[in-house]
């Protein structure tokens, strides 16, 4: 079965992309419903299925249904390899404290079979969008857990990534915040955002990205996705996950993983 490189050589007209499911199976369900309704040709997940939310195994039926093409994030590699930690690349003790709690929870509650499936995911993927070549990776093309924030990613670095990938459009995730930059030569870089956790802007929705190529050329849209965040918060609490995480789901403000954020991004948050 050609599951490893399902999309090499395929051409699409409209695709949906997202990262960071973070066990948020409720948002994942909504996303798939929306994508069906808006008739996208394909759905891509850029990795990090676990962390943050409750009931890890509940995301896998959809992830493994064949409707979504996925690549592996650092979290997925760690779970598949039975690693001690999530490999997110935090360096601050406070960030690591919370990362540890959700990793241990996710590790305990992900079935062996699902972990094995994570181990089969490719680390990158390419496909055609109209005449454009799109490349997907998790952190950056060179490092699965590289943080690419808008305020710390210079144009020349991103152009270099696009050149070495031979791509017109490069998409990543990992940080949890979406952004886009148009680069010289009509190239585009995207951080497609995550559907597992809101964006640290005081709103409870999450985000995904739609790319499109039609007669009018290339277009993109960041789409807000609503889901039953109150239910997620209830289930997180019932599972004994930290109140800090529950608060993020309830309010849309990040309470953890703050130390790794550059000041520009952190300033627009509350904590």
């Amino acid at each position: 079965m050609a599951e490893k490189r399902p999309d090499a050589g395929r051409r699409y007209r409209r695709v949906a992309l997202f990262g960071g499911v973070y066990n948020n199976y409720l948002a994942l369900g909504e996303l798939v419903r929306e994508c069906r309704a808006s008739q996208v040709d394909a759905i891509f997940c850029l990795g990090d299925m676990g962390g943050f939310g409750p009931h890890p195994d509940r995301s896998f039926p959809l992830l493994r249904s064949g409707e979504i093409r996925s690549i592996a994030g650092n979290y997925d590699l760690s779970l598949a390899q039975g690693n001690e930690d999530c490999g997110c690349g935090y360096t601050d003790p406070a960030d690591n404290h919370f990362a540890r709690i959700s990793y241990d929870y996710t590790f305990r509650n992900t079935s062996r079979e699902n972990k094995e499936w994570l181990g089969t995911l490719p680390s990158r993927l390419s496909f055609g969008l109209g005449p454009l070549k799109v490349r997907l990776c998790h952190g950056s093309p060179r490092q699965v857990n590289e943080f690419l924030w808008d305020s710390t990613s210079p144009d020349h670095l991103l152009s270099g990534f696009l050149d070495s990938a031979g791509a017109d459009v490069l998409c990543c995730t990992h940080t949890g915040l979406k952004w886009h930059r148009e680069l010289p030569g009509q190239k585009h870089f995207f951080n497609v955002g995550v559907i597992g956790r809101p964006e640290n802007d005081g709103r409870t929705n999450v985000w995904y990205t739609v790319l499109e190529y039609d007669g009018r050329g290339f277009r993109y849209e960041f789409r807000p996705l609503r889901y039953d965040h109150r239910r997620l918060a209830r289930e997180m609490r019932a599972e004994g996950l930290p109140e800090e995480f529950v608060e993020t789901a309830r309010t849309g403000w990040w309470t953890t993983c703050l130390e790794i954020m550059p000041s520009r991004e952190r300033r627009s948050g509350k904590f």
Partner: peptide, 8 residues
């Protein structure tokens, strides 16, 4: 540095 792709 710009030419060499320095990040920060």
């Amino acid at each position: 540095a710009r030419r060499m792709g320095v990040k920060e």
